[in-house]
Amino acid sequence: MIERKQGRRSAQDAVKTKGEILRVAANMFCTLGYERVSLRNISEQAGVSHSLIRHHFGSKEKIWYAISDCLQEFMIGYIRTIIDNMPEKLPANEKMYIFAVRLLAHMLMNKQPIQLIADAVRQEDALFDYFVDQSGEIQAVVDTIADEYNQEHPDTPIKVWEIKWQMIMYAHGAASMAPFLLQTWSEETNDIDQCLLNHWQMFNQIMAHRLQIPVEKRLTPNTVAELVYPCECAL
């Protein structure tokens, strides 16, 4: 009995250690970039030996893929949360609107996915291609909403990639150029949360106009955080 408990504790400790390594590595990849991070850097920051990291993961590339898988699963789960919380029989334009503005709000509050993707674009093609190849489930969810919208609005069809591109620009801009974000509204506030809300409102206005959302149906939060459903951190 004692041996079994010790075995369970050992297994739990190993899982905890692997999780901490991934958390530290994710922060380093996002802030420094993949090329500037080494296994030794990760081991020093995580407080574990270089050999232990190699035992658990084998290489820096495998750590990156493990982080990407976690974030991918996290984003898929969150997208499904947005869909599941939509009222039944909602018109397609309102579905697409709620999906886009709530997902951007989440990306503004949880920067790691967009930071990792942006860094992958700067690296070898294999890293970026990994995101594209792994995004089929997300794409299917978005395409379903877009197809429904285009069937209901054949005279003003939407292109999914245009909306995704706008979302990527707004998310990445806030994540990578925070000083400019603060400077933009420096005359009225020095509160980063208010600046994020102003930033989100710009996207909100674009989506509301593009998707023909009546004023009374548009979201009017006091903070971006209000739009984010409770969820566990990816790492």
Rank of each mutant, 00 (worst) to 15 (best):
M1W: 09
I2M: 10
A14E: 13
V15K: 08
T17N: 09
N27L: 07
N27C: 13
T31A: 08
T31Q: 14
G33I: 09
V37T: 01
L39K: 11
S43A: 15
E44W: 00
V48T: 10
V48E: 07
R54V: 11
H56Y: 13
G58A: 09
K60A: 02
K62F: 04
I67R: 01
S68T: 12
E73V: 01
M75G: 01
Y78A: 00
R80I: 04
I83R: 14
P87M: 10
K89Q: 05
L90M: 15
A92P: 08
Y97F: 08
F99L: 15
L103G: 03
L104Q: 07
K111L: 10
Q112N: 14
Q112E: 09
P113G: 05
I114H: 03
Q115S: 10
I117E: 08
I117G: 12
A120I: 01
A120G: 11
V121Q: 13
V121A: 12
Q134W: 01
G136P: 01
T144E: 10
I145S: 02
I145T: 03
Y149N: 02
Q151S: 05
P154G: 06
D155Q: 08
W161Y: 08
E162L: 08
W165G: 14
M167Q: 15
G173T: 09
G173C: 07
S176D: 10
A178P: 08
P179M: 13
Q183G: 15
W185H: 15
Q194L: 10
C195G: 04
C195Y: 02
M202F: 13
Q205A: 10
I206S: 11
A208D: 03
H209M: 12
H209L: 09
Q212H: 09
Q212I: 03
P214G: 05
P214Y: 09
T220H: 13
N222R: 15
A225P: 03
A225Q: 13
E226G: 00
C231W: 03
C233L: 00
